[in-house]
């Protein structure tokens, strides 16, 4: 069974002469536990696609199924809960909450769900992310790479079945980015998490199990690495 099913999604911004077709009839499916890289030039529709997957934006037509749930027929209240439990987001611009410390930022989604945070897992994540010494700092006191690692920690902490990452290594040097990616891969392997990641970096795309290319809103599947 596929964790993620995308069925002929189209997205058009504007109408008439100024209409921009960001996505044209995109369909694909991702089995559970797979690491998918999405490559493509700027403005090709990658981020639009990712927003659709995370139900942050609605498509003009088409459907997205996450673990069998049709995300666009859900009520907004249901969708919020669903997103919180099933999807982890890592944005290019980190989107950390400036008033909260590193630790609070990571725990935030769990506290939203009225859960008792798993302290042992927090320690484990902080160690792996190399943020142990920084847990009390505010995001503004951290470097870009550290902030990105906090964002990754936040996405991983709820153990979502789907992680959507929009150029998570865009602001990191090559050493840092390969560390971050291997961390993502390791974490996802442990809990059979599925990752869909946008990247510009060819070598990072090679780490993925499968590469999808978006160009001018059209998706091409480059196939899996192993078969």
């Amino acid at each position: 069974m596929n964790l993620l099913e995308v069925k002929s999604i189209c997205k058009t911004y504007g109408s008439g002469e100024t209409a921009v077709h960001a996505l044209k009839n995109v369909s694909f499916s991702v089995p559970k536990g797979e690491f998918v890289a999405v490559v493509g030039e700027s403005g090709s529709g990658k981020s639009t696609l990712l927003n659709m997957l995370g139900a942050l934006d609605t498509p003009t037509s088409g459907k997205v199924f996450i673990d069998g749930n049709d995300t666009f027929t859900m009520k907004e209240r249901e969708l919020t809960v669903f997103r919180r439990r099933n999807i982890g987001f890592i944005f290019q611009a980190f989107n950390l909450i400036p008033e909260l410390t590193v630790e609070q930022n990571i725990l935030f989604p769990v506290l939203l769900d009225y859960q008792k945070p798993d302290r042992a897992y927090l320690e484990e994540l902080l160690t792996v992310l190399n943020l142990k010494g920084r847990r009390g700092h505010l995001p503004s006191q951290l470097s870009g790479g550290q902030q990105q690692r906090v964002a990754i920690g936040r996405a991983l902490f709820t153990r979502p079945s789907l992680i959507l990452a929009d150029e998570p290594t865009g602001n990191l040097d090559s050493q840092n980015s390969s560390e971050v990616i291997s961390l993502l891969k390791k974490a996802s392997g442990k809990y059979e998490q599925t990752i869909v990641m946008i990247t510009h970096n060819r070598s990072i795309a090679q780490i993925a199990d499968r590469v999808l290319q978006v160009s001018d809103g059209v998706l091409t599947d480059f196939g899996r690495q192993q078969d």
């Binding site: 673990d67 859900m74 769900d113 009225y114």
Partner: peptide, 26 residues
Amino acid sequence: CNEEGELYRLFHEVNSLAAVLSAHTE
């Protein structure tokens, strides 16, 4: 399980377990 509350969180965990199991068998 898309409701607030502990019971539904438990259901969510059961769902995750089921999904992981399926993935493993596959």
